[in-house]
């Protein structure tokens, strides 16, 4: 029953110790995401959206509870296994792009394949294919400074896709973009969703959320399912 879901969170709590008080960024969260879902995560700032995304993406560890992604229980994994899990299963897209300024678009997209120990020739081909997919075929040799904000975020999306992940996690991908550029990026994400990629997109923007098949709201570390 649970095995059908791509992401399965059971009673997940992430607590921070602040002085003598314990603060719960995630509070007994139960969540299940099916493969192919396009899930929007909304909620006020500081509610725990990023924490939720990081726990699912194997970048953060919960204080308590079980996280199963693509059949792998992240709880017992060491650094090596968790890193391998991130390479194989997860693609991250950040609000501030986080591209290497001194690398070309192609080099930025190839970076995850370096850690995945993919052969250099294959890296180039796969990165080029992903850049083509995000519509930047003719910008491969450009550096981030030579690209617009929307183009930069599309490079970041290509980088997230290059390892062919099961789940793409985007943490406020349009947060640093004006609405037109934001639209452009959301169009790309939506088209990826239509093509079958499972998406978890964090956003403040209600119009962005409306494109998702499913919206969940996070408040004070608790996940509330929005009405479909």
């Amino acid at each position: 029953m649970a095995t059908t879901a791509l992401v399965e969170l059971r009673d997940v709590t992430k607590a921070y110790q602040l002085g003598d008080e314990s603060f719960r960024a995630l509070d007994q969260v139960h969540l299940s995401i099916d493969a192919g879902d396009f899930v929007a995560v909304t909620g006020p700032s500081g509610s725990g959206k990023s924490t939720l995304a990081n726990v699912i993406g194997g970048l953060d560890r919960p204080t308590h509870g079980q996280v199963v992604v693509a059949g792998e229980d992240l709880a017992g994994m060491g650094d090596g296994a968790l890193s391998r899990f991130r390479i194989d299963r997860i693609g991250f897209v950040f609000q501030s792009f986080n591209l290497k300024a001194d690398g070309t678009a192609l080099e930025n997209v190839m970076l995850p394949l370096v850690f995945a120990r993919v052969r250099p020739k294959e890296r180039r081909a796969r990165a080029a294919a992903c850049l083509e997919l995000v519509g930047l075929k003719d910008r491969m040799g450009h550096r981030p400074s030579q690209l617009s904000g929307g183009q930069r975020q599309r490079v970041a999306i290509a980088r997230a896709l290059v390892t062919d992940p099961r789940l793409l996690i985007a943490d406020e991908p349009t947060g640093n973009l004006d609405s037109a550029r934001g639209e452009e990026v959301m169009d790309l994400l939506a088209s990826l969703g239509q093509a079958g990629t499972t998406l978890l997109v964090i956003t403040h923007d209600p119009t962005v959320a409306s494109r998702a098949g499913r919206t969940i709201e996070v408040r004070d570390g608790k996940v509330l399912e929005a009405v479909r």
Binding site: L59, P112, F115
Partner: peptide, 9 residues
């Protein structure tokens, strides 16, 4: 970023 894309410690 490197850690996020899968670089181990």
């Amino acid at each position: 970023v490197m850690r996020a894309v899968g670089a181990r410690r």
